[in-house]
Simulated scan of single mutants.
Amino acid sequence: MRVTLFDGVEENPTDRHVEAGTAMAKQAGIDILVGLGGGSAMDCAKGINFILTNGGRMADYKGHGKATKPMLPSIGIPTTAGTGSESQSYALITDESSHLKMACGDRKAAFRISILDPELTLSLPRSVSAITGIDAIAHALESYVCLKRNPVSQMAASTAWRMLEPNFDLVLDDPKNVEARSAMLVGAHFAGMAIENSMLGICHSCANPLTAHYGIAHGIAIGLMLPHVLRFNGQTIGNLYDELAQETRMHNGQPGYEAIAQRIEAMLHHAELPMRLRDRGVSQSILPILAEEANQQWTARFNPRPVTETDLLQVYQAAW
């Protein structure tokens, strides 16, 4: 087979990356796409599929089901245990003009085949294993409680949580542990399945503006916000967090949301990831702007506890 390599993908791909990949794909006359890499590579592959087969620009496909023509068959091969993009029909592409992440979804964009090979994750730097792992854990926790939760999504999310929580530390301490790597990879895949069948919440809504303004890697931004989101939501849907805490035996007489929040903080500490926004140079004066932008994010509408801009500002302040 004649193979054309497009490697012009960066973290948090934008419509510019998709356009560049589409131009190369057109020139090569490709008839199948393989998304090999982390979530950014796989999302960009989906984005290229949209534009190559249906024309226009990425903003035309914001939402779901906007592609009217058939799309090329594609294969997803993740090299990180993070986004679970290989199990979803959505591509998250940033609009360069507004810095807002666009969720562009269509059943036709989903990979026909996903290949999960834990050996591909053995060479990940410790920091990348940690960052992507925290992202996968947030996917499981948010999809389990979001407003669109349902028996199928909760089954996938709880399975993901049970696989990810005990193996996160193992992978950091023993990076060549193939069994732990496999559990993280499959756990991330199940967390992606949970998102595909439900949605996320304000942890992702709050993380995206941090990436847009400060270039903070997505998984780091997720880790900075997650414990505070758990405590915010726990006031309303604490019983659901109780269920997850019981599954991993971490109640210890505390509310489930607090036990899980403390576990996440322990993971961040073990991974040597920042735990306060100010540790990453985030100015306190920008928090109201971040809250305004977080409130505009699509995922905020599916948070189990209704939020206003004022609520989001309080969550940012708790994280600062």
Rank of each mutant, 00 (worst) to 15 (best):
V3W: 09
L5T: 10
G8I: 13
G8C: 13
P13D: 01
P13S: 07
G21Q: 12
T22V: 15
K26H: 15
K26I: 15
I30D: 03
I32Q: 11
L33K: 09
V34K: 08
G35Y: 03
G35D: 02
L36E: 03
A41Q: 10
G47M: 05
I48C: 11
N49A: 11
N54A: 11
G56V: 02
A59R: 09
Y61N: 02
K62N: 11
G65C: 11
K69N: 09
P70W: 03
P70E: 02
P73I: 06
S74N: 13
T79P: 02
A81M: 05
A81H: 05
T83W: 03
E86Y: 04
S89Y: 02
Y90S: 12
A91K: 01
L92D: 00
S97C: 09
S98E: 02
K101W: 05
M102S: 00
M102A: 01
A109T: 05
S114F: 09
P118N: 08
S123Q: 06
I131P: 01
I131E: 12
T132M: 10
G133N: 08
A138S: 15
A138Y: 00
A140P: 12
A140W: 07
L141A: 12
S143N: 09
C146R: 07
K148Q: 14
R149I: 04
T159Y: 13
N167K: 12
N167T: 09
D174H: 14
P175Y: 00
E179L: 10
A180I: 02
A180S: 12
S182M: 05
F190N: 04
A191W: 01
G192P: 05
N197D: 05
H204S: 11
S205I: 12
A212G: 05
A212C: 07
A212H: 02
G215I: 04
G219H: 07
A221R: 05
I222E: 00
I222K: 04
R231I: 09
N233E: 07
N233M: 11
N233Y: 07
I237A: 14
D242C: 04
T248F: 02
T248G: 02
H251Q: 14
G253V: 13
E258F: 03
E258W: 01
A261V: 05
A261K: 07
E265T: 13
A266T: 10
G281K: 11
V282T: 08
L287V: 11
I289D: 09
A291Y: 04
A300R: 12
F302T: 15
T310Y: 03
V315T: 04
A319W: 06
